[in-house]
């Protein structure tokens, strides 16, 4: 475990959190706007998948 690995770990957490908060927030906002209830779940899923894809692109695909 070098220091670079630790940096990657913290960046992975930041990506996942950003994905969930950003797209979950967008889903929540659209729910509020349209009077629906399920868009926040879709937002979470989109955020999670896109954050995973970004992690794959940045750290796993060499």
């Amino acid at each position: 475990m070098s220091s670079k690995d630790e940096g990657a770990m913290f960046t992975i957490i930041a990506y996942l959190l950003a994905g969930l908060l950003l797209w979950g927030g967008v889903g929540m906002f659209l729910d509020h706007l349209l009077g629906l209830h399920f868009l926040v779940v879709i937002g979470f899923l989109v955020g999670l998948v896109s954050a995973m894809y970004l992690i794959y692109l940045r750290f796993i695909r060499q």
Binding site: T11, A14, Y15, L17
Partner: peptide, 11 residues
């Protein structure tokens, strides 16, 4: 948007 949010807010 995800990258921008990560680099400028979340991190």
């Amino acid at each position: 948007p995800l990258e921008i949010a990560t680099y400028f807010i979340i991190r």
